[in-house]
Amino acid sequence: MIQDHEQFLHLKVNPGASQEDIFCTFVYAKCYRNSRRLLWDELTCISNLHAPWLVGGDFNVILHPNENQGGDMRRMGPSDDFNDMMIDTRLMDAGFEGDPYTWTNKRVWKRLDRVLYSKEWTDTYNSTRVQHLPRRLSDHHPLFITAAKTRTESPLPSESKTCG
């Protein structure tokens, strides 16, 4: 464990099999914009890792208007803050499979939970999947993340030589 913050847990993980260390940050963002700004600042401070970095969890903010159904969309400032943090940290959204909304109070549906990763993450794991699993006891969908390095086929030589 590198940092235990009130809005995230930042870990250094060694996946074994002589792979390089990776960093994972698990987020549980505050509900209020000013508190989340502190989180964005902290994530920006630790973003100079130059190593594979995965950041995921409940960010308590949407990124785009289409990630909200049934709620008030007059204020997009919190989304702008979130987007600015992603630009500053050079983190990319991993996308998802499944239900487009990860949280509901049965009147409003939002995608508050997501996974972000660094360019170095994609260099190490060129296949990352995020699935929104069915919601059971919580008002949030759990996220199931799989990451792998898939083999790329090397091109065949244009001519072959026979030795003999």
Rank of each mutant, 00 (worst) to 15 (best):
E159K: 12
P142Q: 12
T89K: 06
T128F: 00
N34G: 08
H5P: 08
N66H: 13
M1K: 15
S138D: 06
L112Q: 06
E159F: 12
D21R: 04
F26G: 11
S154N: 12
F96V: 01
D21W: 08
N48Y: 13
S118C: 08
K119H: 04
P15E: 06
R107L: 12
L116A: 06
I145F: 01
D139S: 09
H132I: 00
M86H: 03
W103A: 04
N68I: 01
P134A: 13
G77K: 12
P100R: 07
T104N: 02
R111G: 05
I46K: 02
L9K: 05
S154T: 12
S47L: 12
D41W: 06
L9Y: 04
L156D: 05
S158E: 09
R114G: 02
L143A: 13
K30Y: 05
P15A: 07
W109N: 04
S118F: 02
D58A: 06
L137N: 04
T124S: 10
Y101C: 02
Q3S: 14
Y117H: 14
S154R: 13
S118W: 02
D41F: 07
E120F: 02
R33K: 14
E42C: 14
W121R: 04
K12V: 11
Y125H: 08
N105M: 06
L43A: 09
H132V: 00
D139P: 04
